[in-house]
Nucleic acid binder design. Structure first.
Length: 324
DNA sequence: GTCCAGGCTT
DNA sequence: AAGCCTGGAC
């Protein structure tokens, strides 16, 4: 922990750095609740660079909570296509409907109400409170967790109940009375650009004098990652009269999206590619197959939402056919 | 080629 | 505790 006087000095140094070195982000210029809501959903498990173009497109198509609430799930998923973790898109859609139904389209500022929205966990609720409503609350994303673990040289696993409690208390002790938005933004940018994962750039750090870490590269301590399993997956790209056959995802993977139909592993594949998904590494093979009655056909210029690897497989398949 | 970053739900 | 996705860095 850190006392109030020290915290005040810390924030002074941090804010001086932030005012000149802070990032300019599309959802920061006008931190209205809806822009913050959308950006924070997109930023769950996803980097700023990946989110930027999606955010811009999203705001053109769904400029407010109302327009999102009345959209179909298919339209929502199509605009999320390629960003991954599609439950976020379905949850954001459901959250927009709930905000319209329960709060007349006004996004609540209360953490308890926010937390009750689908897809809003501890982090997102605090991020909306801080960024949209300028509340002084601890905001603990991966960047800020790393900054705090290093500042306090916290050498315990941050994923345990004790680890989370420590980070929360330490974050609270660093807060100033007001300017919750600036504080969270500055801490996040520090983590993203200076106190980054791996080797941090301590020589450029504005709060180096406050940092207790002697070996920052080893922090924070996280649980060991799960082993990778290899899988083989055979699918078919079947096109009849210019239309392509797809099936809707039957399981939790890529739920709501449309996939290339599964096929037998009989003939040698026309083409293959590999991709990683959660704890699997998949070899995806494209083979010929006869169309089945359960498959649905789609115009190739107007495809429903599909996962990236299957879109890539279609592109690769067409390239292969062209060569022959 | 391999490794890595990044929150919520069930 | 396990499952969910992708693009970019190396």
């Amino acid at each position: 922990m850190i006392d109030e006087k020290k915290a005040s000095e810390f924030n002074k140094a941090l804010q001086a750095w932030f005012s000149s070195q802070g990032r300019v982000l599309p959802w920061r210029s006008n931190p209205s609740p809806y822009l913050v809501l959308v950006s924070e959903f997109m930023l769950q498990q996803t980097t700023v660079a990946a989110v930027k173009p999606y955010f811009q497109r999203w705001m053109k198509r769904f400029p407010d909570v109302q327009s999102l609430a009345v959209a179909t799930e298919e339209q929502v998923l199509k605009h999320w296509e390629g960003l991954g973790y599609y439950s976020r898109a379905r949850n954001l859609h459901r959250a927009a409907k709930a905000i319209v139904a329960q709060f007349g389209g006004i996004i609540p500022s209360d953490m308890t109400l926010l937390r009750a929205l689908p897809g809003v966990g501890p982090y997102t609720a605090s991020a909306i409170a801080a960024f949209a409503f300028d509340h002084s609350v601890p905001v603990l994303d991966a960047n800020i967790q790393r900054v705090i673990a290093r500042l306090f040289d916290f050498r315990e696993n941050i994923a345990t109940a004790e680890g989370k409690k420590f980070l929360h208390q330490a974050a609270a002790s660093l807060l100033s009375e007001n300017e919750g938005r600036q504080h969270a933004s500055a801490m996040m940018d520090l983590g993203a650009t200076i106190c980054r994962a791996g080797e941090p750039d301590c020589t450029a750090c504005p709060v180096r004098a406050f940092c207790k870490a002697t070996d920052p590269a080893m922090l924070p301590l996280t649980p060991p990652k799960k082993a990778i399993t290899h899988l083989e997956d055979w699918r078919t790209v079947t096109i009849r009269r210019g239309k392509i056959f797809l099936i809707q995802s039957p399981g939790p993977t890529w739920k709501g999206l449309w996939l290339l139909p599964p096929a037998e592993s009989s003939a040698p594949p026309i083409c293959s590619l590999t991709y990683a998904i959660t704890r699997y590494k998949v070899n995806l093979h494209i083979v010929n197959a006869e169309a089945m009655p359960t498959w649905q056909s789609f115009s190739q210029e107007n495809l429903p939402p599909m996962p990236s690897p299957h879109l890539k497989a279609i592109a690769l398949f067409k390239l292969q056919k062209k060569k022959l």
